[in-house]
Amino acid sequence: MPSPDRSRARREEMLVQLRELFLAEGFASFGIGDLAERLRCSRTTLYSVAPSKEQIVVAAVRSFFKSAAERIEARVAAADDPARQLAIYLEAVAAELQAASAAFFADVAGFAPAGEVYRENTQYAARRVQELVAKGVRAGVLRPVHASFVGAAVAEVMGSIQRGAIQAATGLDAAQAYRHLADLVLTSLAGGPADQDQITPPRRQGRGSAEPL
């Protein structure tokens, strides 16, 4: 019997392969047999990830957002300037989503449990932007804006991107839309000293089960 450490390592390896396949081709058209054939593994190995295809999909989608969040936050932490941290965060989100195909986003939109994972991460990302805006205003490197309003506005746009409304209206895919959102936010907030009386600290919210984007 494999050791627990080896089993965990094998599961992580499978998740990496699954998310790469799903990002490239989506997941709705694959059955367990198809996945086993494409990944050259047994059904038993796939079921070590989760006990059903639906749960395997959710695990892979969650794994994608979790690994993306870790890379994004590592890049943010490497910058000292709060304005640069905001720029890095928004640009890195767009870069991470660039790997996802239209088929992946369509399948996420059509499968409620995967869509919920995406929605949770979108909500977290909006809160993270709010935190970074407030930090930049306090440091005097961003214009003195109402951070909670910016966070709420960004959340609305991110939600529209996630639901496909932005693509329907503009033809932009998710990664392209996030890049334009980054340009809009950064351009509108650049420059000007902070007025501490205008700063409203972001309301703390629990993350729940969300994995940060």
Rank of each mutant, 00 (worst) to 15 (best):
R38L: 09
I166L: 06
A99T: 06
P212H: 14
S7P: 02
A28G: 03
E37W: 03
F27L: 02
A194G: 15
I199N: 05
A103G: 03
V61Q: 00
L213N: 10
Q162S: 13
A24C: 06
L213C: 10
A94I: 04
Q205N: 07
H180R: 13
P113R: 04
A126E: 00
I56K: 00
F104H: 05
K53V: 08
A152S: 14
S188Q: 12
E211I: 07
E20Q: 12
P2R: 13
S29L: 10
L142V: 09
F65T: 07
L181W: 03
T122E: 07
E131S: 08
D80A: 15
I32W: 04
R127M: 03
G26K: 02
I72H: 01
G164T: 03
E131T: 11
P212R: 09
T45Q: 12
I161K: 05
E211N: 05
A24L: 10
L35A: 06
A102Y: 14
D173V: 15
R8V: 15
Q98A: 11
A126M: 00
V129Q: 04
E20C: 06
A59K: 06
A99S: 09
A134N: 04
E25P: 00
L189V: 05
R138K: 15
A194P: 03
P193D: 12
K66T: 08
I72C: 01
G159Y: 11
A169T: 12
V150S: 01
A50P: 00
G33V: 10
V185M: 01
R207P: 00
E91C: 05
A68D: 05
S101T: 04
L15H: 05
Q55Y: 10
T200E: 05
A94F: 06
R207G: 09
H146I: 08
A103L: 11
D80E: 14
A92K: 02
R203Q: 12
R43N: 13
P202S: 09
V154K: 03
D81K: 09
G115F: 01
G191F: 11
V108M: 02
P4R: 07
G26C: 03
S148F: 04
V185I: 10
I88M: 01
P2G: 00
A175L: 07
R40I: 08
E156A: 15
G140L: 03
G140E: 06
G192D: 07
A60N: 07
E91H: 14
A112C: 09
L184C: 04
A103T: 11
E70V: 10
P144R: 04
V137F: 06
A109Q: 14
R203V: 13
S67W: 05
E54V: 08
R143F: 15
